[in-house]
Computed example of a mutant assay.
Amino acid sequence: MSRTPQEIFENYVYSGTVTRNADALAENFTADGVFEAPLLPAGAAFPRRLVGREEIRSAMAAYYEQQVKDDRSPNLEKSRYVLHTTSEPDVFIAEIDTVFDGDGEDDVAVSLVQIFRIRDGKIARLRDYFAPELMS
């Protein structure tokens, strides 16, 4: 049974952003899936390009381990997203506004766009467009 864009997106966000579970995140991708963050400079802490489910799994596990001191988590009640279907049935776009609670200060809002290319209910290619300074 094929998953809907909403099911794919929500599972991807839950396994990555919410729970930081690299194994679950990687299972959202095809065996040869590609994850890209094209706006990041080479050598950034967050991976710029990962090819294959196993590379996604290991690189994201290492990244999540580095980020253990960052206890920020998204405020799901304040965060919003809109999914846009395209003329290609295996492509959808996520327009996201994620809100992180501030430390007694104002909330921090992060806007980004992700382009998903799907094959057999899994992510074959994901391009994640966000401001590079967010990952420093």
Score class of each variant (00 low, 15 high):
residue 12 Y to M: 07
residue 45 A to R: 09
residue 57 R to K: 15
residue 52 G to V: 04
residue 70 D to C: 00
residue 126 L to H: 03
residue 93 I to A: 01
residue 133 E to Y: 12
residue 89 P to S: 08
residue 123 I to T: 10
residue 104 G to D: 14
residue 81 Y to H: 13
residue 132 P to N: 09
residue 34 V to A: 02
residue 85 T to Q: 14
residue 78 K to A: 15
residue 79 S to H: 07
residue 122 K to L: 15
residue 126 L to R: 05
residue 50 L to N: 10
residue 107 D to L: 10
residue 74 P to K: 06
residue 67 Q to C: 12
residue 14 Y to P: 00
residue 119 R to E: 13
residue 42 A to L: 07
residue 122 K to T: 01
residue 74 P to I: 14
residue 79 S to V: 07
residue 116 F to A: 01
residue 49 R to M: 03
residue 61 A to M: 03
residue 80 R to H: 11
residue 17 T to P: 01
residue 73 S to D: 06
residue 33 G to I: 00
residue 119 R to C: 06
residue 110 V to W: 14
residue 127 R to V: 01
residue 61 A to H: 09
residue 136 S to Y: 11
residue 135 M to K: 09
residue 128 D to T: 02
residue 109 A to C: 05
residue 45 A to T: 12
residue 23 D to K: 13
residue 28 N to Y: 06
residue 122 K to Y: 01
residue 23 D to W: 09
residue 48 R to G: 01
residue 23 D to E: 15
residue 50 L to V: 10
residue 76 L to C: 03
residue 68 V to N: 02
residue 96 I to H: 09
residue 33 G to W: 05
residue 31 A to T: 09
residue 75 N to Q: 08
residue 21 N to V: 11
residue 17 T to H: 07
residue 10 E to F: 03
residue 86 T to E: 03
residue 13 V to G: 03
residue 49 R to C: 02
residue 127 R to K: 14
residue 111 S to M: 08
residue 52 G to N: 07
residue 124 A to K: 06
residue 118 I to Y: 06
residue 70 D to G: 07
residue 23 D to G: 13
residue 106 D to W: 05
residue 40 L to R: 01
residue 135 M to F: 13
residue 66 Q to M: 12
residue 120 D to E: 14
